[in-house]
């Protein structure tokens, strides 16, 4: 398995220690795993292709339906938003509460299409990555090509497993929304797979065509 670390400058960075996660692939088939470090630059995301395995380390932001609605309504009024956008990665997730002694509860992805109405606007303003599960609209796929962003899937329904990649969490906005508040997660080698890349490929469509 070939591993290519990537950081915000598009240059090689030592791989993060402490994670034993690996995607298993066909015997004899070499599959590259890209280790991404946030924030991401255009140079970081452009070489990535649908089907590539990645891990993400650094800060990412959870945001779901209502948080997106609030962010975009602030942008519509030309007001500042409470989190950075440029080069950032949004994780469509609403974690379960942390039990005592734990960093976080279960933290798998939610279905992404519900954020489709808001995503092109955020990509235009510099958002580089989105993590979720499920298909995106044509508008979002086109916006990823135009503004150079990527969409990644995490394993849906593996919230207990994915929690192991989360090393820190704090609420940064909209605490009143409870599970839907925006949280800054510090992640280490959070595993994902590229679904949509910057040239318009779609892994879901490709996978289904191959299998049916």
């Amino acid at each position: 398995m070939k591993e290519i670390p990537v950081d915000g400058q598009g240059t090689v960075n030592p791989a993060m220690p402490g994670s034993d996660y690996k995607f298993q692939v066909e015997k004899g088939m070499e599959k590259t795993v890209y280790h991404l470090k946030t924030p991401l630059s255009q140079d970081d995301v452009e070489p990535l292709r649908a089907g590539d395995m990645v891990t993400i380390s650094g800060k990412i932001y959870t945001a779901r339906d209502t948080a997106h609605k609030r962010l975009v309504s602030l942008l519509d009024k030309n007001q500042n938003i409470p989190i950075p956008l440029k080069g950032q990665v949004f994780y469509y997730a609403g974690p379960s509460p942390a039990a005592p002694g734990k960093v976080i509860g279960a933290v798998g992805p939610t279905t992404s299409y519900r954020m489709d109405p808001y995503a092109p606007r955020l990509l235009e303003l510099g958002l580089k990555g989105m993590i979720g599960k499920g298909k995106r609209s044509k508008e979002v796929v086109d916006a990823m090509v135009k503004y150079k962003g990527i969409y990644m899937a995490a394993i849906g329904g593996a919230g207990a497993l994915l929690a192991r990649s989360v090393k820190g969490v704090r609420i940064v906005a909209y605490e009143d929304l409870g599970p839907e508040a925006i949280r800054e997660l510090v992640v280490e080698k959070f595993p994902a797979i590229i679904i949509n890349d910057t040239v318009g490929n779609d892994l879901y469509a490709d996978s289904q065509n191959r299998s049916s």
Binding site: K102, A106, A160, R164
Partner: peptide, 13 residues
């Protein structure tokens, strides 16, 4: 993991 650590199987409980 969920069973051992008493952490929900999925965040959507």
């Amino acid at each position: 993991i969920a069973k051992k650590e008493k952490i929900p199987l999925c965040q959507d409980t």
